[in-house]
Design a protein around this nucleic acid. Sequence first.
DNA 1: TCGAATTTGTGCGTATGTATC
DNA 2: GGATACATACGCACAAATTCG
Lengths: 266, 266
Amino acid sequence: MNPAERDRYQQVADDLRRRVEAGEFKVGERLPAIPAIAESYGIARNTAHEAVRTLAQWGVVVSKSGSGTYVRARPGVRQLIRCYDRLRGEGGPIANGLETAARRQGMRSYSSQSIYAPMEVRVRLGLGDPDLEDRPDVMETEYLHQLNDEPTMIVRSWEVLTITRGTPIALPEEGPYAGRGVMERMAGIGMAVDSTSEVVGARAASSEECVKLQMPPGAPVLTIRRTFWVGGQPVETADYVIPADQVELAYSWRIGQAPEDRDTAV
Amino acid sequence: MNPAERDRYQQVADDLRRRVEAGEFKVGERLPAIPAIAESYGIARNTAHEAVRTLAQWGVVVSKSGSGTYVRARPGVRQLIRCYDRLRGEGGPIANGLETAARRQGMRSYSSQSIYAPMEVRVRLGLGDPDLEDRPDVMETEYLHQLNDEPTMIVRSWEVLTITRGTPIALPEEGPYAGRGVMERMAGIGMAVDSTSEVVGARAASSEECVKLQMPPGAPVLTIRRTFWVGGQPVETADYVIPADQVELAYSWRIGQAPEDRDTAV
DNA sequence: TCGAATTTGTGCGTATGTATC
DNA sequence: GGATACATACGCACAAATTCG
């Protein structure tokens, strides 16, 4: 037998999703309360709770403690355009397949400190032996971005201090380029970022992240490890943690005729 | 007080993760059984089970029913290189930051059918009015990829039949280019794919996907909507569903000096 | 303003099913 | 087949948040 249909709470969760998608419960509306669900399906309250929790993990609904569980808006997904091929004209990927990006972030709080880079960051930044004078070698900054008073992502960035030390941009959020973004600030001291690499993954949010991002436990997050390069040399790297709820990452690029391209394209 | 520390099962999950990361339990080793955990922390078996389940959602451990819960290998992550800047030489992003990709997929089972494209696919492929003769207009193929007898991803692809109909590549897994990948097959009929767009997201796996991919319920998956373009015209689009467990997507690209670049780079 | 009712979330004890060894 | 371990299910209780009279 199909193991997915063996468990009651899965059956109920699947059925509730079907009913939501069939339009029986509109976006923003409240689902029946857990005790009501339990009775109508002939299951225990606990099992009904498990079903609703599953629905919430799927992103179909959000549960507000003390209030109820509400059908979530599906089309509210923001696309973050990460990389795109500007050579395309009208009718290209952007115009046809990808919507406009929400470029403006909302507020962001931050805190910076110069530290001795941890091992993983050393590798990513290509830092060799420690500073001879044993000084901190990176500026670490943690941001909490918010949009409409709701947290949208956590960013931790590390900038190479041997590059920025003593310049006006040493502190990311002070000086003439305060809050301008890494590329613009680097450009301010003559470092033109010419290359980007990103590694994208996903996992369930840690309990700490659930608190900071106001997410239910177990909800998935997208993770990005991004590095900026100047002439083959990494100058900054950052970790993004983004609730997978409402965000998608858009990439678009041109393809050459090298055989490697055909190999990698699954 | 920190709400994350209010719940017992969260505390225990956090503590177990700390112990795993501290090396108390090595990779591949078995954790204490749930009843043992329950006793040692002074909690109910049920609560201990919840803690272990949380650990599994975090990807720290995998639970094998009837056997035990085992610490999972962290460094075993496969990086799928999606897009990279080939102009970089040694010492560039690839060499320093990104490891070699596992290009070879394992086995894959598939099934194809020519259908009338659903609405969402029509939009992605830029299909206008339906075929005058009301014939199917796309070839839909579903793949289940496997590596070492373990499912690695589900792919559903749609190819535009007005392009491939009557050609040797109409059926993806038959003819001279059977199983060669979309780009190579398209090249076989003179269609040189010159552009790619991808939209990456993440969510909890549906119950159906959990079965096909042999994942625990609620585990996160990466999703990719990919489209291949020829001269501004989409020729194929596909949906990827990949367990977020052990996979990361690597992107790397060059950056121009246009101001838009600095805007989009957060 | 206050308190009662409702709702979600957690915790416990127990029982049962199923997979593995 | 028996022992062990994980997974689900139920019933109950309580805490915290919200709603509403």
